[in-house]
Amino acid sequence: TIPSPNFLHQLLEGEQDEGQLRTKVLTSLQKEQANRGKHDCLNTFSIMCKMADQTLFGLVEWARNSNLFKELKVDDQMVLLQSCWSELLVLDHLCRQVTYGKEGCIYLVTGQQIEVSTIISQAGMTLSSLVTRTQDLVSKLKALQFDRQEFVCLKYLVLFNPDVKSVQNRRQVEQTQERVNRALMEHTQQSHPGHSDKFGQLLLRLPEVRSISLQVEDYLYQRHLLGDLPCNSLLAEMLHGKHS
């Protein structure tokens, strides 16, 4: 089917509101801190995990509210999300950096900006490499003038992945992926006619997103083994799902 002009518009309508997400994350962190004694502060890594956890809740809610996703049974929804949750987190982070991030800074979901140099000076080797790789990808996306329509298409392409094992309704997933792929191609051709291969350049970023997401999962899993990862969280459950 040829995507209708408002197909992309419908996808955009399902996007979370950044301000609402920011409020939700800040409220959750304040509640967490209020439950602790004044001198028992959350360490930086735990705060980052809480932010990621709340963002992940938001992404699951986003997927769940999508009409395309609703067409799948819950078992298929679970398998797809279990497979791509960390890619969705990375894409969400990348889009936030392209939209709001200042040069040399990382823009957090709480609205705060942290100098990349500050993180690098305190982080270990793995996290430093992750930050550097991600910032490089942000630069590439900025150079490509990555916009919100393209971002939402990439999220759907990552979510509706027919290659995920044990997907029952593979054909449905394939059809949605093809439809979104076509919408992305037409959008890049219409909105950036001068950039002949923007569509191809955007798709080339997906393996990089996948690679970074796998490194993020390994990093989080290592920290989990050290007992650093807050338990009873969606983040921990999704991590276990993949490593069990």
């Binding site: 809740f57 999300l81 969606l234 799902g241 069990s244």
Partner: peptide, 18 residues
Amino acid sequence: KKKDNALLRYLLDKDDTV
């Protein structure tokens, strides 16, 4: 595995009308 994904299943399966 199913037990591992209890929270995800709950989030996807919960009834909004409640």
